[in-house]
Computed example of a mutant assay.
Amino acid sequence: MTIQDAATPPPPSKVSRFSGTVGPLGVGVAVLWLSIIVLLPLAALTATSFENGLSGFWDAVTAPGAVAALRITAIVSAIVALINVVFGTLVAWVLVRDEFPGKRFVNAIIDLPFALPTIVASIVLLSLYGPESPINVHLNATQPGLVVALAFVTLPFVVRSVQPVLIELEKDVEEAAASLGASNLTIFWKVVLPVLAPAIFGGAGLAFARAIGEFGSIILIGGNIRGETQVASQYIQQQLEMDRPVNAAAVSVVLLIIAFITLLVLRVLAQRSIRREETAA
């Protein structure tokens, strides 16, 4: 063996090793915890939904009541996501770029839907927009009422997704565009919006995923009218009350699939955005 051979380090082992600070014990605990909290319940739910076989699952999710509830849920949730795109971005812009009295208070109440029990929100909305509305606006048992309730519980998603991006956004490019004669609308559309787009889309996707499974905030103001205001979560509750757990589990699995696909698309788009930024840098 030569001196050069002795100084050459051995080739890396092909055996996979754990990297980081927690080691295999920490990874094992994390996997175990996620399995108990997430994977096992999801596996049990999926198994229940297929108790009557694939045909039974298909019959459950294609029943007229299930189709109507899923359709209403998807439409209302999409509308709520679009509303969040517009007003969530506007609120984030105001909180970052403007100064006004009570700004800290407004910034604090953005997270209120995360802390407030959703059934409380439903009670408040019913008292405000119900049959005895003090402002003479009656949204009880209507799809606009569903939109208002879901917009309340999903408010923080776009706002909190856009705010950090706006804070880190350099104003030099905006000032350069303004010095060249670009209008405020042109600056926002051509300069600011492309940077904010991934955050806006991500927040809207999270709002949509939250809205399709919401129950508490719409339980009172929604009315639970089949084919009109009954959303998927209420249909699931109805099937459980009628002692049809397989049907309830089947519709729940459909909601899980929709939410998973939404989050997966967001993940892929976020990774692509990061790669584009790294390439541009």
Results as ranks from 00 to 15, higher is better:
Ala249Gln: 11
Gly102Leu: 04
Ser35Tyr: 09
Leu150Ala: 08
Thr262Pro: 05
Ile83Gln: 13
Ser179Thr: 15
Ser35His: 05
Ala249Tyr: 09
Val91Ile: 13
Gly23Leu: 03
Val246Trp: 00
Ser133Tyr: 04
Val192Thr: 13
Ala176Met: 11
Ser127Cys: 07
Thr73Leu: 07
Ala63Asp: 12
Leu169Ala: 12
Val268Cys: 02
Ser183Lys: 01
Ala232His: 10
Pro156Arg: 04
Arg71Cys: 01
Thr21Glu: 13
Thr154Met: 10
Leu193Gln: 02
Arg104Asp: 14
Val159Ile: 14
Thr118Ala: 13
Phe260Asp: 02
Val137Leu: 15
Asn84Asp: 15
Pro24Leu: 11
Gly205Arg: 00
Pro245Ser: 10
Gln238Tyr: 12
Phe157Gln: 08
Ile79Arg: 02
Val191Gly: 08
Phe100His: 06
Ser161Lys: 00
Thr142His: 11
Phe188Ser: 01
Thr89Leu: 07
Ser183Met: 01
Val124Gln: 04
Val165Arg: 07
Phe87Ile: 15
Ser179Asn: 13
Gly181Tyr: 13
Val254Leu: 12
Thr186Asn: 11
Ala6Lys: 07
Ala78Pro: 12
Leu263Ser: 05
Ser55Ala: 06
Asp111Tyr: 03
Gly65Thr: 04
Pro194Asn: 05
Pro24Met: 09
Pro12Asn: 10
Leu185Thr: 12
Ala259Phe: 02
Val38Ser: 15
Thr62Pro: 01
Ser179Arg: 03
Leu126Glu: 05
Gly88Asn: 06
Gln234Ala: 14
Arg275Cys: 00
Ala121Trp: 06
Ala178Ser: 13
Glu168Ser: 15
Glu132Lys: 12
Ser252His: 07
Glu170Val: 00
Val124Lys: 03
Leu150Pro: 09
Ala141Pro: 07
Ser49Trp: 06
Leu25Gly: 01
Gly23Ile: 02
Thr142Pro: 09
Tyr129Phe: 14
Glu51Leu: 01
Ser77Val: 05
Ala30Ile: 14
Asp172Glu: 15
Gln234Phe: 09
Phe87Thr: 13
Ala108Met: 08
Ser233Ala: 15
Val159Arg: 03
Val153Ala: 07
Leu82Arg: 02
Ile212Ser: 14
Leu112Trp: 01
Leu256Gly: 14
Leu95Gln: 04
Glu51Gln: 12
Thr229Leu: 02
Leu116Lys: 01
Gly102Glu: 10
Gly203Cys: 03
Ile79Met: 10
Ser179Met: 13
Val147Thr: 09
Ala81Leu: 07
Phe152Trp: 12
Ala248Ile: 10
Ala178Phe: 06
Ile225Pro: 09
Thr229Lys: 04
Val38Gln: 12
Leu193Lys: 01
Leu180Val: 08
Ala66Tyr: 10
Ala280Thr: 05
Val80Thr: 14
Leu263Phe: 03
Glu214His: 08
Thr62Asn: 11
Thr46Leu: 15
Ala44His: 03
Gln271Ala: 13
Pro198Gly: 07
Val31Phe: 12
Ser127Arg: 08
Gly227Asn: 07
Pro64Leu: 04
Tyr129Trp: 01
Pro156Lys: 03
Asn136Val: 00
Val67Pro: 00
Gly65Leu: 03
Ala69Leu: 05
Ile109His: 08
Lys14Ala: 14
Leu269Arg: 11
